[in-house]
Structure formats: C-alpha cells, structure tokens
Design a protein around this nucleic acid. Structure first.
Lengths: 337, 337
DNA sequence: CACAAAAATGACAGCGCTGTCAATTTATTT
DNA sequence: AAATAAATTGACAGCGCTGTCATTTTTGTG
C-alpha cells in the first residue's frame, strides 16, 4: 500500500481557518475571492507545500485535464515532431498528454483507445481515418473532441486535420512526368500499413497512367522506414529493373538511403536516376544535394490539433462536431529530379 | 458541462442483480469470484458496454496506473527511442504514460514535475541527474519510484539507469590518440545543456591532456543538434583551424552533417580528417562509410527503466529506494577514424 | 441610514470506485 | 449430520475534491 501523505484541501482549510471550498476556489483561481482570503489560503498552502490531487478534482468535476494522444510509431521523426507540436501548445495550459503507441496495429490501437478513454480524457488525438469498427464506434460515442490527424482524404469521426495524400501523389506524378521521367518506380515501407500511404501511391499511379506513363516498378518493404532500408530497396529495384529513371519514395529517410546508395555506386543524379521523397524531414536539408520532396507540416499539424482542441474546450458546446482541415503541401523541387 | 453518460458500476450491478462491489471485483479480476458471478457480471458489462472509470478507481485505491515520463527533447531520435522502449514494456500492462517535454529547461522541468505529480502517478522517469533544487526536493518527497535515466555518473535521488558519459569521453579520447590523431577538436550542440554531455566532453578533454595531446578546438553550438548544424559547425571549425585532424561530436547527427560536408568539399576521410560521433543513431548505418561512434542503448534504457518500475510496483515496499544501474557502452570503430 | 444588490463564504451531497470487515453460502472433516 | 473451515458475497464508509444552493458580509443607492 503506497502512502500519499500529501496534505489535502482539508489540511489547508484548517490551517488557514476557512472552509475547504474556499481553499478549492483559491486554488482554481475562481472568481469572487477577496484578496484577504486569497492571501491567507495561499500562505497556508505554501506552508504545507500543498498540491491539489487532480484525480479527486477530475472525479468531482467530471472533467480531466488530460488529452489522449495515440501515435502509430516513434521510429522516425514524423510523430515525435507531431508530439512536439502538440506539447508546444499544451505546455502552457493545464492539459497534459497521455500517450499510446499503436505500432500501426488496429487491434492494439483499439485496446489503447479503450484504455486511454477510461481516464476520461477531455479529448483524443489519433492518426488517420483508419480504425477498427469497434474503435470507430467507441470514438463516435466519446463525448469529447476526437481529432484525427495526418490525413485529409476521408470522413472524420468528428474533426480532422491533415494533408491530402492523394494530392501529394498527383503532385509528384505530374512533376516527374513533366521533368521528362517516363520509367518511374515507387518504393514504400512499413508494409504500407497506414492507409494514407496507400492512397498517396494509388493516386500517384493513377495520375501516371493518365499521363501515359504507368508505373514501371513498385516495391513495398515490410520493415520500418529507415535510411538503411531505402538504400537496400533502391539497390534491389535497380538490380531488377536497371532502366528505371526515377523513383518516388514513401518517406524521406528512404530517399536519403537511396541517394547515398547512388553516390556510393557512382550513379549520377538526376541524369541516370531521379529521386524524390516525401515529408521534408530535417535530415534531407543536410544532404550535399537538395532532394526533391513534398514537405508536410508535421509540427504544425500537432499545434493545429492542440489549438483546435483548446478551442473546443473553451466553447459551451465542446460536443459539437468539428470539421475537416486540410493543411497545405509544399512540393520542394530540388536537384534530384 | 461535458456529459459522460457512461454506465457505472451501479448500472452493471443493477442489471446483473448483484452488489456493486462484486462487479468491481469481477472487473479487477479479484480472486474468489464464482464463475457464475463472473459470467453474470461480464454479460451485463458487455451489454452496457461498460468501461470502468479509472479516475474513481484511482481515487479510491490511492494508486494510479500512470507513469509520468519527462523527456528533454523530441528533436532527434534519442528520446523517441527511449519512449518507444518504455512503451514496449508498458503496453502489455495496465500502465499508461503521461508525457512532458522539458526542452532542457530546469524551470520548465520543475513545473512539469509538479503538474504530473498532481496526477498521483505510480512512478516517474526523468532524464539525468540535473534538476533544480526544488525539483530534487519534490522528487525526494515523492513516495513512488523515481527513475533517472540516461546517465550513470552521479547520485540518484532514488534509482538510476544510464550510461557513463565520463567513460564514453575517456574511451573516445584513447581511441583517437591511439589511432594517431593529435590535433583534436570537439563539437557540441544544444548549448551543452544536458550536463551529461559536459561530463563527457570534460572527461574527453582531461584524458586527451593526460595522453599529451590536449584538445585543439572546442565549439559548442547553441542550436539543437541536427545534421545540418553538424555540417555548418564542421565547416566553421575547419575554416578557423585547418590543421585539426580529428573531431569528436556530441551526437551522431552532427557527425553525419560533418561527413557530408567533407564529401562535398573533397576532404578525405580519415586521412585529412577523422570523424567520430556519439549515440549510434540508426542514421549512421546508412552512410557510405562506417562512422566511428559510441553506441548507447537508448531503447534498452527505456525498457530497463520500465521493467524496473514494474518490478518496484510488484514489491510490497515499492518505497524502498533502488540503486544505480550502469549500462554498457559500445565503441564502434568505423572507417572514419 | 435603511434597503436592495452584489460579492464573498460556507454547508452539504456526491462524483464512481475500492478497502475493510461482517455476513452468508459452500465445501470439508470427523 | 454436526461442526468447522474456506470460499463467496455484501454493507458501509470514504478517497479528495467540486457543483449547487444557502447564508453571510460588503457595497452601493436614494
């Protein structure tokens, strides 16, 4: 039995000679407190080193200052950046983040959703529109804001903030064809589990076909996206189809690996092979050559989601469903295409 | 007023015709429950789609299933990997992580500690031994496990799990001198705020001096460690002191930037300049050349911390202070030294 | 200065659950 | 079958706080 010998409201009330509820009001900065009262209570609280028990407060008020956040992965900088964005907005507020990592597994996501919601968070942020049916049901029933981030091509349960991966695919298809590449390959990772990368690739392929140059090679790795994986995948694809003249990668770490592979093998970029990535990770800024990519606003999706959450919390009707925010993509044309 | 029309224990109790406490027992898998009872209750719970309110449970039992985790940064893969490690252990348990990011700021760390502890977590994981006096006091008074991760050179408040940064500095000093480098530079970042990097550098410098080749150049950047920063910092150092023959970097992303700089500038590695990093980030595995670095067990520090936490929670006396765990470092000698 | 209105404070119940211990039922022993 | 032990179930209070509404004090007005 762990002991929390922490002082309670009662202790502060007794020491300062006022009622518990008044102490509660002072601690919460409620209105209509005389400065005399405030001073008395604050002194007593300081003397006892009192910290409110938020659990009790949350139970009594039926509101927690917790925001549940479920990310699919921590293995590249995408979601840490999103979390950083969320935190940057929340850290000056009373809200804290409760974290879950789903590892791109719908079933685990469902468990985590269930578990996190049992803490009665004031809202929940999840990635994408892809959830198990049960998850979707639970989230629909949840009385507080549900914010789906990262994607913009789909119907949100409540509110979504993200980018259009379809648009990204189309954008890149048009760019590559326009630059004169006709034998184009695609390399993905993670077994393409987040459906938004599937959407992106399919839109990419569709647009390529429309433009008359259907995809020449497609390779989806099951491992996590990583620089090394991109290097190997690129080598494999080139070995199988040496006539490929451009490759679009599902993530920037892959394209960096491919770039390094080409440097090592003396493959001239973009003459022999053009390379393009996705996300605009900080990593690519350091490469000797500017790498073509589509920048996604990861940190900003985090901040936007957190701000939207705060906004909803400040309304009378936080229950009112929100809408769908599509954030801009930025095709950064570098020297690799 | 947000409504949680969620069913409660009482609802389940009424539907199944038993007492609330029995429902509670079934939900918690308490011992001594007849299978008849279990079945009845579980059916009723399923029918109502009942989820326990952990807030109430936590208040009543004075134990939460929350573990507070405060990391200093999300801007490179170090702490995401640690979090991933923590999560990998915790996700099969009932414990959840409440996250705070201190941005290497003691004052903010203090606020976050205060805030997170008000949720009565069952434990807290913080980075390093460097805390404000108030933080240290609060953590000492905290009745549950306090685990300080990342470092091993210091006195833990309660328990620590980390690597010896002093040893790392010494290791690298010896390696570089042994390989024949005598004009050695050091490049750091983040304004060297986490004290463990200071310790590492100082041990490095001390050992170099002892070996007769004191540090020739030292450059501490104030920005966050990043590939691009390493590139620029390396360029600056070489411009100022072209005779430097080896550089030890505070983090691998810096060394990768420097490596790319050298490739771009035609500086031959390791003949003209030797490079060594720290951490063993996945990033360096993809470079055309094996980069010398000291691998730190980041994911493992996360798992070890979480396991230690679980172990403490399963004891009768989780209050008993733990000890100090020093995890091994791995000097990976590559082709850049 | 009397009186209404506004501000400040307090009493009380209860949020949804669990710890404790008592009461009941079932199993075991002689 | 009676007596005892063990397993199962329940009653009750209370965790530490806040919502609601009642009460007291202060302020403002004619």
């Amino acid at each position: 039995m762990r002991s929390f010998a922490r002082p309670t409201l009662k202790d502060v009330a007794e020491l300062s000679g006022v009622s518990e509820i008044s102490v509660s009001r002072v601690m919460r900065n409620a209105p209509n407190i005389s400065s005399k009262m405030r001073k008395k209570v604050e002194e007593a609280a300081a003397q006892l080193n009192y910290t409110p028990n938020r659990l009790a407060g949350a139970l009594a008020s039926k509101t927690t200052d917790l925001l549940a956040v479920i990310v699919p992965s921590m293995s590249n900088s995408v979601f840490p950046e999103v979390l950083d964005g969320i935190d940057s907005v929340l850290n000056s507020t009373r809200y804290r983040t409760v974290l879950g990592i789903s590892h791109y597994d719908e079933h685990r996501e469902e468990e985590i959703i269930r578990d996190l919601l049992s803490w009665n968070p004031s809202g929940i942020i999840v990635a994408g529109f892809e959830h198990s049916n049960v998850s979707r049901q639970i989230l629909s029933d949840f009385a507080n804001p549900v914010i789906e981030i990262m994607d913009a091509d789909g119907t949100p349960i409540d509110t979504s903030i993200g980018v259009s991966h379809e648009k990204a695919g189309i954008l890149m298809a048009e760019h590559l064809v326009q630059m004169g590449y006709h034998k184009i390959g695609y390399i993905g990772a993670w077994g393409e589990r987040p459906s938004r990368s599937v959407k992106r690739r399919e839109a990419f392929e569709k647009r390529l076909s429309e433009l008359g140059f259907p995809l020449s090679a497609r390779q989806i790795e099951s491992a996590d996206s990583a620089v090394l994986l991109g290097k190997d995948a690129c080598a494999t694809m080139l070995a199988q189809q040496p006539d490929i003249d451009a490759i679009f990668f599902a993530n920037d770490d892959l394209v960096v690996g491919a770039y390094i592979h080409c440097m090592q093998e003396g493959i001239s970029i973009p003459d022999q092979l053009a390379l393009a990535g996705f996300n605009g990770l900080p990593l690519i800024d350091a490469m000797p050559m500017e790498i073509t990519t589509i920048k996604t606003p990861r940190f900003e999706m985090g901040t936007a989601a957190a701000e939207l959450f705060l906004e909803r919390m400040s309304l009378d009707q936080p229950t009112t469903k929100g809408d769908k925010v599509s954030m801009p993509l930025d095709l950064k044309i570098g020297q690799t295409t």
